[in-house]
Design a binder for these strands. Sequence first.
DNA 1: CTTTAGGGGTAGGGTTCG
DNA 2: TCGAACCCTACCCCTAAA
Lengths: 164, 164
Amino acid sequence: MGAPKQKWTADEEAALKAGVIKHGAGKWRTILKDPEYSGVLYLRSNVDLKDKWRNMSVMANGWSSREKSKLAVKRVHHVPKLEESPLPADNDVKSDDAAVDVKAHEVPLMPIPSQNRSTIRLGNLILEAIATLKEPAGSHKTAIASYIKVNMLREVKCWCYWLE
Amino acid sequence: MGAPKQKWTADEEAALKAGVIKHGAGKWRTILKDPEYSGVLYLRSNVDLKDKWRNMSVMANGWSSREKSKLAVKRVHHVPKLEESPLPADNDVKSDDAAVDVKAHEVPLMPIPSQNRSTIRLGNLILEAIATLKEPAGSHKTAIASYIKVNMLREVKCWCYWLE
DNA sequence: CTTTAGGGGTAGGGTTCG
DNA sequence: TCGAACCCTACCCCTAAA
């Protein structure tokens, strides 16, 4: 459902090359704003220009993906990358007495076992909401939790109602 | 060029989140100096923290040039800012059959009467979550709503539990 | 002077899709 | 399968404000 994927035309490539010659590689925004090229490249963003230039350069150097993967130096990441562990089919979120095996003293950080990017994002969103709520008044955790219960849950429900 | 690009580790992200909860978003230098996190974040600057927090939190404002319709359009318009209408002292959000006087056809935009910055943010967060969820699969509204019900509500409850 | 908010911008790894 | 187009993240710069 993303973008329809816009193939670069010969005109656009020519404009990009001319722009790089005129302003230099890396001056993508400058090239984009240059009236000399903006008429041709108006569909593109500065990032698009950067990416296209990279693709063109790679082709010129004759690098294959296999060689690139050889050269790719992997940094040491100790990301455990949790298993996919699909979401529980349980469609019902139990009310406030829902059993969540999380205890404040035992879980210093995120209590949510994020299993995919979307879920991680949601956790971040909630975290941000909490952080935001801290600003106005020096609210304490209980106050924040209360606020979330009252407002955020209500908003979520409201949104669900609206979406259905 | 300058930076070898240090990808944030899970530990660093966790420390940042914990720091934000402890000191608040915006207290980057304070978080950095906190002995509780300095061991993990010693490679980062306060600006790094700020940028990272921005990366984690702000993903709603699509600058993806193309395809900013749909949800983005809805975000453009603003809700006519209803009066203060204080929150119900009711600490309990009733379960899924909660009566919300919102009907899909009557409320084309945000159904939430945002009354202050925090609430507005919450609305945006939910909107962002919806936008995020739209990416992976061409989900439809019902699927999104279902997802939110199952996961987001669960996460919110999880957070509340953790905070209390 | 130091810090933060926030707008812009770029590089490069990763991912998707034709 | 491969590569062009696109996305995501980290880092950078700048300026205004506190």
